[in-house]
Amino acid sequence: MFHQTPLKTATVLLLAGLAVAYGLSTGFFGLELLTEVAILAILAIALDLVAGYGGMISLCHGALYGVGAYAFGSATVLLGWGAPAGLAMAVGGGALFAWAIGAVTARTHGIFFIMATLAFGQMAYAYLFESPVFGGNDGLPGVPRLDASALGLDLNDSLTFALTCLALALLAYAVSAALLRSGFGRTLVGIRANEARMRVLGLPVWRHKAAAFGVSGALAGLAGALAAQHTMYISPGLLHWTVSGELLIMVILGGLGTLVGAALGAGVLVFLKHEVSRFTDHWHLVVGLVLIAAVLAGGRGLYGQLEHLWERRRAARRAPPETPAPDEETTGHA
């Protein structure tokens, strides 16, 4: 069950504050990194929504992200419909593709669900890679950014664009949190806990799972549209399964089923990779060792670990000292 605990609120505000402070003080490349983190945070939140709360570990979120980017790119570059229409198509396209995947894979679980989503993602990747209409593997250049001058924003300015992406990441978090606190979200967690029981209760399980996957796809599509505007160029690499894989790593590293952890994981992985690669070309080695160490050190993910320590301290203060600390069952997935 999702609770917007004070610790969670504090973490969200702290991360947002840190990001703004970093954005205002850093150079051009720092803003590139910040924008990347904000966009990946939206995508990671989208994944955590279904993976952490619905038990649907997806390996196609890179593809949903790419579909969003290609929808935006097609609308603006190929069809000339303009950025607002592109944005709508990205969100809608991501939602539709995800809903369809969610609907047909609803009966699969665990590794089989992972592989089924991978299959659909890779089909989309292979199609775009070889499709001349969308530029094949060379991709589509010349993607414009949204003209937000009516709001007094110049999105071609790196700082404005980074902060806009950051604001949208906060919005994505708020929407996801609200959804998880609604009856819909509670049902979703119920399905994860015991799908058979929910079915016996008369719930059309597949429809519920597909809808949740669709919402997640809409957020992924939004992230894709932002990525297309950020680089002003799209290529099939966005859809490759390794993007989904790295995304899953971000979510697990940050703490699966915590929502804020997903965003934290995105930030930590992007900055870790960047900092390490300043010193060596062999950044894979260092990042790989960090991932292994993170699991050996606790296995709850970064935010999960923080929450675990926090709860233990609180429990220790409340209860007499001889009572053992509560175990994971009572503190996990707050």
Partner: peptide, 19 residues
């Protein structure tokens, strides 16, 4: 440790082996 931690550890191993 659960499948998610297994994914993280073995993905880490992929990275380590690569280098």
């Amino acid at each position: 440790a659960g499948p998610m931690n297994q994914v993280l550890v073995t993905f880490g191993l992929i990275f380590v082996f690569l280098d």
